[in-house]
Design a protein around this nucleic acid. Sequence first.
DNA 1: CCCTGATTCGC
DNA 2: GCGAATCAGG
Length: 172
Amino acid sequence: MIWTDERVEKLKKLWSEGLSASQIAAQLGGVSRNAVIGKVHRLSLPGRAKAGGTTAAARPKRATSAPRAPNYAARAVTRTVTRPAGATVLKEEVVVDLAPEPDFALETNIVVPMSRRLELTQLTERTCKWPIGDPLKEEFHFCGNDSPESSPYCSYHARLAYQPSAERRRIR
DNA sequence: CCCTGATTCGC
DNA sequence: GCGAATCAGG
């Protein structure tokens, strides 16, 4: 692969924006992250603040937060409005509609994981590729959580993707 | 193990 | 000049 002026410019731009070498390599295409790093050196571009885990500088820190506390207020309101519908079946559906808000219980089996909000270029063989949001909008991202056994999805989204039959109803 | 950048050195 | 292999670190 040859470093055309165009590619070099893109490299400079992305590198200055703080993207990692692998991300830049993915975006340029046809080159490895090593190639990118090698080029960066040859160009004498400024390296990253601190070796190794420059991660902190380039990447906004995501909180390793515990599950959020349920928003009881919001849930209560919605219920009130819903009840008049009457049908037993409908009642269940509406409640679930509020999801993904854990159905009160910090100890439930049903846990909606917080997504890592990864960009397309950040996905690897072992990150969840479940898309979130409108692809045409800026906030579009992928779940990005760890996916077991190189599955395309994390355990949570794998369940949504490969629903057998019975579970399907409950969630909708 | 996954990722990151840094360096070396044969091509 | 290029980049895979390797090293070092989180």
